[in-house]
Design a protein around this nucleic acid. Sequence first.
RNA 1: GGGCGGAUAGCUCAGCAGGUUAGAGCAUCGGCUUUACAAGCCGGGGGUCACAGGUUCGAGCCCUGUUCCGCCUACCA
Length: 831
Amino acid sequence: MQKYELIGLPRSYNYKEAEKKIAKYWEENDIYGFDEDDNTRSVFSVDTPPPYVSSAHLHTGHAMSYSQAEFIIRYKRMKGFNIFYPMGFDDNGLPTERYVEKKYKINKGKISREEFIDYCLKETKIGAQTYKNLWKSLGISVDWSLSFSTIDEKCRKTSQKSFIELYKKKLIERRNEPIIWCPACRTSLAQADIATQESPGILYDIEFSSLSGEKLIISTTRPELIGACVAVYANPADARYLRLKDERIKIPLYGRDVPVKYDESVDMSYGTGLMMVCTWGDAEDVRKWKEHNLDTVIIIDEGGRLNEKSGQYKGVNIREAKKLIVEDLKQNNLVKNENRLVHTIGIHDRCDAPVEFIQTSQWFINILDHKDEFTFAGNGLTWFPSFMKTRYEEWVSNLKWDWNISRQRFYGVPFPVWYCSKCAEPVLAEEDELPVDPLVSPPRRAAQCPKCANKSFIPEKDVMDTWMTSSMTPFINASWVEKDSSLMTKIFPMSLRPQAQEIIRTWLFYTVVKSIYHTGNLPFNNVMISGWGLDKNGKKMSKSFGNFVAPEDVIEKYSADSLRYWAAKANLGQDLRFNEEDVANGRRLLIKIWNAVRFLVSNIDDDFDPYLEDIGKIGFGMVERWLLTGFENILRSAGKYLESYEYSSALRITVDFFYNIYCDNYLEIVKNIFWDEGGSSIEGKSERKRRSLNAMYFVSLNILKVFAPFLPFITEELFLSFYSRFETGKSIHLSKWPELRKDLIHEDSIKTMQILLDILESSRKLRTNLNLHQNHKIKRLFIRSLDAELIDALNILSADIISACRADELIISDLADFPTANPAIFISLEK
RNA sequence: GGGCGGAUAGCUCAGCAGGUUAGAGCAUCGGCUUUACAAGCCGGGGGUCACAGGUUCGAGCCCUGUUCCGCCUACCA
């Protein structure tokens, strides 16, 4: 073990130096290592979010949410849990591809798959290192030996095994059907990848006509799709259109004709009450197409251009096509009206391009048939804060599509699948050949197709949705792919899943799906959802928006502890504005802590021993009893708050206690007994000093322990450089959370001490009024009270009142006239 | 359209099984420097708790409605 030098404390706390030194100390001494062989302690396992390393720079919002989870984890560690706290890097999939494409201005169509993957791997490496450095400097206490990267061998193997298992359980199937498609990224997507965007549009009233010559107006925002129109719909209750029952409607510009159909979903009051249904303008078109067996006229290709079925518009992209078609309709005098409107359109959440529907073969995980199960699962989790559960429930109940896990991209985990070149029967890899890339190796086991005995195969080119891997994080952590992994019983289900709110519908939901399908159990017990970091104007911080504050800069200027202090200000689940003043307040707290401990350190003698006598057996006077009572009460509350993930309240009450009770009052009341003054009237001064030092040692050490989860660096620095003279253990973070000492609680001391505090407050006011500084020695302090009980109390407190008010003498007299907060007591003083 | 969160001092936020006179930090004003800390200490001023009703002996907190802000969700093409 590395030695830590015991030194006297310098005048000021050099956090830059100290934080670097301590981060190194933690690493070299493996302070945060998980002990797999320890069977004495319970395990607390954390399903840490793997951030996209391709974003390169994290902002203070990330620092905030990781810190918030970490407060709880550090607390649990001190409560004696064996902590399993890994760090993953999410470096596979579309986010990384998008990042690489942008950074190197790559066109997916013009680069080989291998080259592209090389770029991704390179960026991934750089990103991971950047992240790791930042987490270390922020004091995130993960066990780095438990790191994983979602593109590494174990993760690929895990995803592929998951695929094979679910396929065997008939929960995965390949279907050729209309699917959400991003024309910009040229890939299919899942429902969870879609965001909505309000955008202005135009509702065109277009004149159609029936074969019998009747003119009909149909309103649509997507005239470019008229070539894909396969039916015209009306509401079955709409008397106006019942007569069209056996009619066919001619499509303008195309001349094709389509049937008239009826469906209750058609809003009679919208437009003319007639609606065109296309292949496929939106999810509702897809539903009608499926339910009513409509024709299929696909006119959009994978790149978002119109194809040959669109006739003269072939090769034109959708936006252009809209203009051209509207123009042509207008020339034929078929546009009867235009109404501006704002409508919500679905966009791809990674690139903001409007999504379309096209039909291709994709792999789907069945989820729609199990919605009830997943809703039920949400109830099995303990949500912090509880209202976040609603987000999950809403999402599950609104699911309309099975989970499409195929992506027509390059960089991701390959499917362990080949297809028979003759009959297209899929052939899956065996588990012991994973991970496998079908583009590189042929199917080893299946020398021939099980269905038609053909011997040639076509590899699956698609890669898996990135969430296919991320949803396996509890399994990756538990080494599920390794035979007889003892971790599956040790850390699974995981104790805590901390994460951001916007990925409830993806990471959280998909993980629940996978866990239930693979094990029948929930993947974790507790869910902790953090809010967002906002900029100082209240807008969500984001890299792409450019309104982010770099955590490295904040740490450099104010220290990691100060940044964490800011992060602790928001209640869990609530957004937090970045406010430099608050960070500066954190630094102010550090300096105060430093100096408060320095006061203790500079006043102990060589023979000081805090454990000579048990703290409970020392015959403390009223002031120390009050201090200890206050501390124990704070300890009890802070513990309660932390148990329910209310870290911000825990820190707040501790800070309040530290400032108001410990520093501003306790230390001020007793400090002059440490002054080397001749002729002091305090009797038994050395004994009084000893008791005070014992109380200070006890309270300051235990306050540091309560601060430790929040301010890991300064608490460690003080622990190692001073307290470790008397304490065992190589880190404050491995020390035990203070036990509640009920024997130190004397509730009556609070009431009695209030008398002294009222007098002290008024004495301070008097001094201010008289322009006297607070340590100015006064000759006499006069106190007037007619209450016999109060006078008894004053006599008990007299020595402390004299000390607190820096008086030479206390006289109970009727001279006093300055009111105190206690209406029965007046004071005055004589310079 | 439905839902969730928020609205408290100039600013950022606490507060709650409903209980005297609503708190903190910052900012502001005044005072104080040998004796842990001037990146400090002491003190002062500052609030119709978004609005309107209601329940209650008593409401920032509970109920009803309204208005703003943020978010989630939704097939009005």
